[in-house]
Design a protein around this nucleic acid. Sequence first.
RNA 1: CGGGGCGUAGCGCAGCCUGGUAGCGCACCUGCCUUGGGCGCAGGGGGUCGCAAGUUCAAAUCUUGCCGCCCCGACCA
Length: 570
Amino acid sequence: MLWSTLFIPTLREVPAEAEVISHQLLLRAGYIRQLSAGIYNYLLLARRSLLKIEQIVREEMNAIGGQEMLLAALHPAELWQESGRWQVMGDNMFRLKDRFGRDLCLGMTHEEIVTSIARGELRSYKQLPQIWYQIQTKFRDEPRPKSGLLRVRQFIMKDSYTFDLDAKGLDIAYDKHHAAYCKIFDRCGLEYIDVEAHSGAMGGSESHEFMIASDAGEDFVVRCQNCGYRANLEKAVSRASEPLAADLDGNFEPEQFHTPDQKTIADLAQFTNLPETSQMKSLAMVVDKKPVLIMMRGDHQLSETKLAAVLHATELRPAHPQEIVEWFGASAGSLGPVGVNNMRVLADDALKGRRNLITGANRDDYHLRNVTPGEDFRPEYFDLRQAASGDACPNCGSPLEIVKAIEIGHIFKLGYKYAESMGLRVLGEDGKEITPIMGSYGIGIERILTCAIELYHDPDGMALPASIAPFSVVITPVNYREPLQREAADLLYAECTRAGIDALLDDRDERPGVKFKDADLIGIPYRVTIGKKLNEGKVEFGERRTRASEEVLLHGALAHLQKRLGLPVT
RNA sequence: CGGGGCGUAGCGCAGCCUGGUAGCGCACCUGCCUUGGGCGCAGGGGGUCGCAAGUUCAAAUCUUGCCGCCCCGACCA
């Protein structure tokens, strides 16, 4: 395409509202413009890049037998009421009414829709398995859109859904997706981490996330550099460090002592001269409207995700101060498990086998010493602890690290949740009804672009992987008015076009500096500069990412480019 | 939804405290000039100062309300 005819509104300065790099560059490079909070228009460059990403996704999904569909974006409330998610999704769902007052919503995901198609049409085991997918816009009324295209209210997603006869079939579909996702992210030039994840409000059992390590991310990944263990922080298992002080041995009775104004674990550690690892933290939570007391080692953090998982809870919050006083007769700084019998008491596994610890006395300004879990109170033990950096790897014992990351893909084994609640059944070989088992697999299309920018940029702009850049090459005649340069540039451009390479010819009447700056900014992977060496028949071939450049003959430029792009030389 | 910040030309900002009818840089238009890293010179166009009400002879400036955007938190397949 000819640059002089295109709308590529590059900016010299960074718009004030952009905080993260990818957002700044997307705006500066003229890829996107904001319409409203979390809602963006994708201009030419973004559109081209996103189309390339979609095409890679499409090819890999087709390769595992996926069938592309285009599903409705506007959904009747009834479907979501059937699955129960009309309620569950709460304010995250965009809702509207039609002229007759019927409730509708904008699709945030399509489990209900594919299930509704399947239950009307799939009748026999012979029709399974099925892999259906779509690449289209989804809507979520995010409470706080932010970071450019990272957290938005309208975005493109590839979602696939699988239907299988049994768990074994689902395993196959799941593994196929896992493999396809690896190929997709490889082809997009991204270094990803696939982690075990929690399946959240989707329901279901096994789940993996594909993450890109980045400071712009909102998720945390725990990983072991030694053995390769990796997991979402919400799910990560780790070995806690040893307590800093040995427990007092022996059978002692809990003993109350006065602790004026000692509210936090740190206060108590100082006051009692015993480390945080010898303290027990008492957390009053409200889980599905019922109070629960959680006991943790003093220096440990509760993972609310793990808590929700073990209790199969949908709603979970810390108790309000008034509730705490009502249930415990004391306020938050002095809570403890001894004598509590009006609620479930849970304890983290790290408290198993500990003896004679310190915890609250359920009386303001008093604590108890010599409290032994399992003797002085009988908790239900679970793994409730959030992994922390420095914890030991559960597999090999090496120290774990925690990195910030952006989620770009998520695969789930859904199980029977939707098939059951929405009445999807087929007849099996023996003539009996079978409920198919489902899987659901998403990829955030814009996030691939965003992550590529976060990963690959320098002070001059983006340096996109060739597979997803809006153009493969930019041809830059230093002075397009110069007839020889023009002739050479036009020739190379025509050659590229004939060879099926996306070339951008910078035919603008601009000074070379402007053209170079713009080319760098928009991140085209290769640039052929046509200038002073043309009288020797040579042009300059440059690589954006590395800044490496070499002189090649004009007549060999196309072949050189094809080689670098991994294409057959024509 | 809680806390904070910002809203003045397409972009970045000053002016606001101390009220007197809007300015700078970049971008844009015209002409000349220049052509290997956002040239130079000259001329020019563009703003109901987020919206509304109030105070005042007079409001970008003071007061109140609303709206929008950004950041932190809560939230988040």
